[in-house]
Computed example of a mutant assay.
Amino acid sequence: MPDFNDLTLLPLCVGLTLIGLIASWAAWRRRGLNAGIRGVAWSLLPVALYLTNLLELLWDVVKASVDWVTQLIFSPTVWAGIALFGVSVVLFVVSGFVKGRTAPKAATKDSPKAATGQLPQTASAQPARAPKASKPGKKAETSEEFDEIEDILKRHGIN
Rank of each mutant, 00 (worst) to 15 (best):
residue 1 M to I: 02
residue 3 D to L: 04
residue 5 N to E: 09
residue 6 D to R: 10
residue 9 L to K: 07
residue 10 L to T: 00
residue 10 L to A: 08
residue 11 P to E: 00
residue 12 L to K: 07
residue 14 V to C: 05
residue 16 L to Q: 03
residue 17 T to L: 03
residue 17 T to D: 03
residue 17 T to M: 10
residue 18 L to G: 03
residue 20 G to Q: 09
residue 22 I to C: 07
residue 24 S to C: 01
residue 24 S to V: 03
residue 25 W to E: 02
residue 26 A to K: 15
residue 26 A to C: 14
residue 27 A to R: 09
residue 28 W to K: 13
residue 28 W to I: 06
residue 28 W to Q: 12
residue 29 R to G: 10
residue 30 R to L: 06
residue 32 G to I: 09
residue 35 A to K: 06
residue 37 I to N: 04
residue 37 I to S: 02
residue 40 V to A: 15
residue 41 A to V: 15
residue 41 A to E: 12
residue 43 S to G: 11
residue 43 S to Q: 06
residue 44 L to E: 06
residue 45 L to K: 13
residue 46 P to K: 11
residue 46 P to F: 12
residue 48 A to R: 02
residue 52 T to P: 12
residue 52 T to L: 14
residue 58 L to Q: 02
residue 59 W to L: 00
residue 60 D to Q: 08
residue 60 D to L: 12
residue 62 V to A: 13
residue 64 A to T: 04
residue 64 A to Y: 10
residue 66 V to W: 13
residue 67 D to S: 04
residue 67 D to I: 08
residue 68 W to S: 00
residue 69 V to A: 03
residue 69 V to T: 02
residue 70 T to Y: 00
residue 70 T to K: 09
residue 70 T to G: 01
residue 71 Q to R: 08
residue 73 I to Y: 00
residue 75 S to R: 11
residue 78 V to W: 01
residue 79 W to E: 01
residue 82 I to A: 15
residue 82 I to H: 11
residue 82 I to M: 08
residue 82 I to N: 11
residue 83 A to N: 04
residue 83 A to S: 04
residue 83 A to Q: 05
residue 90 V to Q: 08
residue 91 L to C: 13
residue 94 V to Y: 14
residue 97 F to R: 14
residue 98 V to G: 00
residue 99 K to V: 04
residue 100 G to V: 09
residue 101 R to C: 05
residue 101 R to G: 07
residue 102 T to F: 04
residue 103 A to M: 14
residue 103 A to S: 15
residue 104 P to N: 12
residue 104 P to Y: 09
residue 105 K to N: 14
residue 105 K to D: 14
residue 106 A to N: 07
residue 106 A to E: 15
residue 106 A to S: 10
residue 107 A to S: 15
residue 108 T to E: 06
residue 108 T to N: 05
residue 108 T to D: 08
residue 108 T to G: 07
residue 111 S to Q: 14
residue 112 P to Y: 03
residue 112 P to I: 02
residue 113 K to D: 04
residue 114 A to K: 13
residue 115 A to Q: 03
residue 116 T to M: 08
residue 116 T to Q: 03
residue 120 P to K: 10
residue 120 P to H: 05
residue 121 Q to E: 14
residue 126 Q to D: 03
residue 127 P to C: 04
residue 130 A to G: 12
residue 130 A to M: 15
residue 131 P to N: 05
residue 134 S to W: 05
residue 138 K to D: 12
residue 142 T to K: 10
residue 143 S to W: 11
residue 145 E to Q: 13
residue 146 F to W: 02
residue 147 D to W: 04
residue 148 E to Q: 13
residue 151 D to M: 13
residue 153 L to R: 15
residue 157 G to S: 14
residue 159 N to S: 11
